[in-house]
Write a protein that binds this DNA or RNA. Structure first.
Lengths: 153, 153
DNA sequence: TATATAATTTAGGCAAGCCTAATTCAGTGT
DNA sequence: ACACTGAATTAGGCTTGCCTAAATTATATA
């Protein structure tokens, strides 16, 4: 069933993820919420929803509610997983959480699978390391002092 | 002299960087080269060059050559520096060079200063570390075997 | 010098996404 | 039942960037 031109635009992914996020346990969301979440006008959301519906990513009952189809949900989950990896990663490297979240949101759409895979490995590596690995402490110290601890006199 | 609406689009930065890269020691470049470098048609380049010229980023002698103004060069260098950091960073984490270059090119435009700063610190940290730091070897080993060396029996 | 070729530019279009203004409709309260 | 209100949709436009086809010009070659 997967048609040939399955290259989603960045914006399409944004919308799907927003719908996923906003649906929560209710299982659906509304135009206004999406508009606020993405910082656009409701009119723009309406338009996009028609397209997403045509493509089979959402169930769109005009004027009533919006929810994801299984396919839409699958995509939203992928996008979101990628983002979470990136957030963790950036936070590990000392990027403030709020900025990390924004940048992850940007990165998630555009990086190659290989890159994300690698970052994911790195995150797991850090998570599986013995508590507070030395090098990470060294790195933090380096960020603070500007000097690599191994080179201090 | 810096006007108020100085938010360059991503594409604008791409073009400036391409011109910078292609100018090399010649000091100028041509429409065809830019088109090939960016994977677009010459007609599209012409158009964009007119805009870049209006904004004062390039010296554009129609039908003859293109070069950067000091302002254009300044911007191109910033963009390029950001990208180089990112490439190094991704390569350090084991992303294949060619992919790292593409992704860096994508990331360079969109991430916050804080994030890039932090990645930059990380790259410098690695560079300034004693040769082949342990953790990096461990990480590579982990990528290969899927097991954290510190946890092996 | 005249001409052929290759590079450029122009003109006219298209798609994605966003906006404002005007309209339509669902749901609430009387 | 009915009117009100706020949410949603439609219509009409804009910008960015890209494309093709057609017209132009610079340059290399005869």
């Amino acid at each position: 069933m997967i048609s040939e031109d399955m290259k989603l635009t960045r914006r399409t992914e944004d919308y799907l993820e927003a719908i996923y996020y906003l649906s929560g346990r209710k299982g659906y969301t509304r135009v206004k919420e999406i508009a606020e979440h993405l910082g656009v006008k409701p009119a723009s959301v309406s338009e996009m929803l028609s397209k997403l519906s045509d493509k089979g990513f959402i169930v769109y009952e005009k004027r009533l509610f919006v929810s994801l189809t299984p396919e839409g949900k699958r995509i939203a989950e992928c996008v979101r997983e990628r983002r979470e990896i990136l957030v963790k990663f950036l936070v590990t490297l000392g990027v403030p959480r709020s900025i990390a979240e924004e940048d992850a949101c940007i990165m998630e759409h555009v990086l190659h699978k290989e890159t994300v895979t690698q970052l994911k490995k790195f995150v797991k590596f850090v998570e599986e390391s013995p508590a507070d690995p030395m090098w990470l402490n060294h790195f933090r110290e380096y960020c603070r002092s500007g000097v690599h601890p191994c080179l201090r006199s």
